[in-house]
Amino acid sequence: MYETNFHKASTAQDAAALLAKSDDGKILAGGQTLIPTMKQRLAAPADLVDLSRAEALRGVTITKRKKMGIMKADGGETITIGAMTTHAEVAGDTELAKVCPVISGLAANIGDPAVRHRGTIGGSVANNDPAADYPAALMALRATIHTNSREIKAEDYFQGMFATALADNEIITAVSFQAPAVGGYGKFPNPASRYAMVGVFIAKSVDGDVCVAVTGAGDNGVYRHAGLEAALSADWSTTAIEAIEVSADGLMSDLHGTAAYRANLIKVMAKRALV
């Protein structure tokens, strides 16, 4: 690892001020991607600003939805997850597991236990790895990414492989979304890395809108799948998924699988997400 200057920040504001002073500073969240990348000398930030003690950026808040009349719809709670909340904390939050079990399950399957103890949702979202799980979830849940200066819709935030709407020195503080009425995530993990070779996140909002996001497959990162959304909006069934054609255009081909293989996996994972 190249030399770096280590700084600790206890709030997002402190961190922003420290970054502003550096020509080449980077936020250190859980470090489960950044540290290995620095060890391989693929990243060499002059300054590292560690946010691991920023307690205000940690934790899950659930705001219950007001029940209207006698109708009790599932979902609709507003869920806010602080950027420095670890995957283990998301997976282990018992209240969250009740209102949005799909997110708990997704977090429980990222990496391995040691990685989940350190890795954070903010770090994952800031990195926007094209095979990461959270980007698909936030895209399909139409989440909002909160930063130290603004709020960004997930659709505008994720801008391709490792690319996001974050400006220089902009820091994610939280993500928020509405618990879906129904949500599912189907993931085919790479047998070695456990990153998604294909991950399909399907969410039906309390208003009945269907949103489908695909990770691991697109050659430009996470994206929404219009074909699956249309099919499932018309008919919420695995038969509807089976009936559509998933094109291999724009999908990744690498040593793990061809674009055609991934196109097939999208259908298979979509079906798994539904049941």
């Binding site: 280590f6 250190l28 560690d50 040691a114 990685v115």
Partner: peptide
């Protein structure tokens, strides 16, 4: 908490 000590800085 179990942690990979090769993936954390001593300073953290």
């Amino acid at each position: 908490q179990a942690t990979k000590s090769c993936t954390m800085l001593a300073a953290s």
